[in-house]
Design a binder for these strands. Structure first.
Lengths: 206, 206, 206, 206
DNA sequence: GATGAATGAGTATTCATTCAT
DNA sequence: CATGAATGAATACTCATTCAT
């Protein structure tokens, strides 16, 4: 387990370098030389750690998913019902404001690569599925706990998830179109349209 | 009258060939040779009609926008108030089902190119801006006509538009995640959460 | 003789367009489209009047030679002996100052093309030979008329001609290296070193 | 010490290959493939060592200038006054006979490229300026040492330099026009016309 | 592990030339 | 004569991948 402690580090280093370069040049535009330079490594070393360029992309996807999952775990900790839902939305829409400025651009670029590279497509699809799955679970739990009713959790989860992904797309390409700070509240409001809330708690969360 | 025989036709032909190829291979993956082959033309001819590959992409974007605008015009004809809003949503979410099968994939690919190619970014941003602008107008008109109240049309328009764009992203990459036929109704429901409707018309349209 | 009066005009027009473009972009850099544009003609028309691009170059060479020959004829008219020599030098070194600003650059470019294109090489060599031949004749005549003695007209002609051509090369690439107005007087002085003048006429001409 | 194994060598190898090809096909005619083939290298390697084709041309110019400078240094060693001048002339006019058979043709081709490629123009102009500068210095020293008087070293240097460059141009394109072995003596004679020599040393050197 | 030189296929773009109208 | 669309070969340059050291 402590064998070649370097390798793991190097791999992450390279994946992050791809993120950095890809955010500005896209996947095709990010040459191995670019990546190596961004990582401060010799070009030959990249292919020592990754067999192909695609492998780096998949590793980056993993990394992005993990980061997001961590953020989610933290956000959902100790929450239930509506609060869980709201925190899910908040955590996701924090992507644009997060530490990695290129993560958003990479996500959009990944979405494009996913269409043409089957392996990427599958991995990306799984990531989407997993996140949406959490949302479904969360809605079912909310219903089970009596926090709210949700006539069709599958449909509701997809809709909320779509709203989130859509804000990503707009934020990446035309940030001006999103009034500052309006994304999360708006999605939270819209989400409520897909639930039936008990009588007295109609205020939006935070 | 036969003066400019076919140059306009050829340009459209080439742009459509790009759409066809790009849907499967992405923008970078669509070589000029591929495009020419898809259009049934000699490779050299492509650059006779378009100076650069980017120009073809911009022409394709124009085409996609026009198609969508036509669809919208048709859908909005003679409608007002809530109906307008619903038809806007329906028309947009028809993209996936439309005649051009690759249009959706191209739209996602375009969104990626928009990030790295400034010219594309501007054009794509303008397209987004224009469509969202229609939504804003529509909400303001609805309010003016008393069909509903909309506390903040800018925010509401962005949110609804995000949901639409998000469905695009999911449809392109993980269609299974969207229960058949659920997209438009879900967005219409969510839209209502951002409006204040008069007493008795709370059923969804269409 | 009056048959297709247009053709002759068109050919000259095209050759001059080549001169114009070639002066700035060189021969390879001058595309048929460029030439056509400079001549204000449709691209297809160029190949109607000239079978190949090389033919235009040869025509341009002819034109340049004719222009220079005209200038020479004028300059040498009614002169003899030393005066002829001096006027030959003056006329040639006027090239840089002449009406056609690109002629000099074209001449240098031609000299480069002459090396790789045999047909151009032959034509260019003939042009050089012809001009130097005039110089030889002129020196022989001067000797015959007793104006001066010239031990070896072949050698002297080549040397004077080289000096002239060398000024072309320098003028085209580093005009600053030539003190204003110094070229012709310097060559005239140098030429005298290859002659034996009678006692009292050692002043320079013009 | 074995750290930068061969990159410098490769660059020279490639530049010399350009010289070889360019002498016969000119600069535009020398394709990267040609150059690689002439150097016995894989095509891709050329662009590994040089970013652009122009860079190779500039390297070749440097090489040619260095070769010539070496030849000059050797020729001028331990000489003064008239002898220096004569050796300068001799050394320059040895170019055609030198080991590199294509050097002359390349020089002419370079002169053409210098006109249209600004970077080449500057470098070529600097080379011309440097060589002529040596001539100016040499003339001033000769005057300072009392070997001869030179009323205007700037003008004289340009004239002698022009004669040399002119012989290049003629040698490259119409060698027959130069009687064998006549170039250097002729230029030496002409050079004297721009000097005032002390009474008794009117024989030519070498 | 690490280096950087090497490979060779791939790509956008240019262009002389042809040709139907 | 004239047009401008069409052709297909050529070219500089890029790049993922390999490999000797």
């Amino acid at each position: 387990m402590v064998r070649t402690p370097n390798t793991h580090e190097r791999r992450k280093q390279i994946a992050l370098a791809l993120q950095q370069v890809m955010a500005k040049k896209g996947y095709d535009g990010a040459s191995i030389q670019d990546i190596a330079a961004a990582a401060g490594l010799a070009p030959g070393l990249v292919h020592y750690h990754y067999k192909t360029k695609q492998e780096i992309l998949l590793a980056l996807l993993d990394h992005l998913v993990e980061m997001q999952a961590d953020r989610l775990r933290l956000a959902l900790e100790g929450t239930t019902g509506l609060e869980s839902l709201d925190h899910f939305i908040n955590a996701h829409l924090a992507l644009g404001r997060s530490a990695d400025p290129g993560a958003l651009a990479c996500w959009i670029a990944l979405s494009g690569e996913a269409i043409r590279q089957p392996e990427v497509g599958e991995a990306f699809g799984q990531a989407l599925t997993a996140f949406r799955g959490q949302l479904v679970d969360l809605l079912k739990e909310g219903e089970a706990s009596g926090a709210f009713k949700c006539p069709d959790p599958e449909i509701a989860a997809s809709a909320v998830f779509a709203a989130i992904q859509g804000y990503y797309a707009i934020a990446a390409n035309a940030r001006v179109l999103i009034p500052k700070g309006s994304a999360a509240p708006a999605v939270r409001s819209m989400a409520r349209a897909l639930l039936v809330l008990p009588k007295r708690s109609s205020r939006s969360a935070r």
